[in-house]
Design a protein around this nucleic acid. Structure first.
Length: 274
DNA sequence: CGTACACCCTGGCCGC
DNA sequence: TGCGGCCAGGGTGTAC
């Protein structure tokens, strides 16, 4: 279920488990995820020390002492299970979707599990990261200070597509997915069906609505990161997956509606989101 | 160029 | 209880 907040949560876990430690062994339990592992995958990792674990959009970047970077994406169903066997509880038995295992020199075992296998891992030279077409095409990080209403306005200017679809475009804003795009639009009281360019003046300035949306995006993402510890099954969403329920906004008697945009479900309140 | 759509893969849920 | 159909939070490649 990974969008930016979940990937950020995973990043923090990996940073704690891996930073400063050496990768002693890499076990690949199958030849591919969404794409095949390179033939030198394990070899390029084993013996290297992890300097840091960073995130760009929904990508995890493990920086290695060799100046290589292990780039990982969780896809739709990827997750990491971190264990520390020495002296503690025994290692959990492997699941059939445990595809990659990293044995760390600090005793941690980092296991990548991904039932749908839409995730991927690849290693690239750190020097090439910025030039990589995937990373070069990414839009601004919504949690960075540099993400202002003006930046959002520039991203939306001239776009005839709907606001919701524009927000899902990683080249416009990096890291928003289907859930948090819906959530942010509800907080900002904006209809997902609005033409994206209507949040921008002719001169390319952000309208008040773009300011509200900028704040809303930041709010829902930060809130999701802060509340990631809440038990699974807890309902953390205002509108996502709430079709037919009453709008949670105080004083709004609207009903959450589901529509399909660009092949994906959008949930919103037609009454208060304009 | 922008957009629309199929596709990659497995599992969970719903209705019959 | 079994089974088919549908749905799922991501990204890419192709066709128009």
């Amino acid at each position: 279920m990974p969008e930016l907040p979940e990937v950020e949560y995973v990043r923090r876990q990996l940073r704690r488990a891996m930073t400063g430690a050496r990768i002693d062994q890499v076990v690949l339990r199958r030849a591919n995820l969404r794409v095949p592992f390179s033939t030198d995958f394990a070899e390029r990792l084993e013996g290297r020390t992890v300097r840091n674990v960073r995130r760009r959009a929904k990508y995890l970047l493990v920086e290695l002492s060799s100046d290589d970077v292990l780039v990982m994406h969780l896809g739709m169903s990827g997750w990491f299970n971190i264990q520390r066997p020495p002296g503690g509880s025994p290692v959990d038995p492997l699941d059939k979707h445990d595809h990659v295992i990293f044995e760390m020199s600090n005793g941690r075992t980092v296991v990548f599990n991904d039932p749908r296998r839409f995730g991927f891992m690849k290693i690239i030279d750190g020097e090439d990261l910025a030039r990589d077409p995937v990373f070069a095409a990414l839009g601004p990080e919504p949690l960075a200070r540099a993400f202002t209403a003006q930046v959002l306005a520039t991203a939306l200017a001239g776009r005839k597509t709907s606001l919701k679809v524009a927000l899902l475009d990683q080249g416009r804003v990096a890291g928003l997915g289907n859930i948090y795009a819906c959530e942010a639009l509800h907080v900002a009281r904006l209809s997902p069906k609005r033409r994206a360019s209507t949040l921008v003046t002719r001169a390319g300035e952000p309208r008040a609505e773009a300011v509200a949306l900028t704040r809303a995006i930041r709010l829902v993402l930060k809130d999701a990161i802060a509340n990631r510890h809440r038990a699974a099954g807890d309902d953390r969403f205002r509108v996502y997956d709430h079709e037919g329920e009453r709008c949670p906004r105080r004083g709004c008697a609207g009903t959450i509606t589901r529509i399909v945009q660009a092949g994906r479900s959008t949930y919103f309140c037609p009454k208060c989101q304009r």
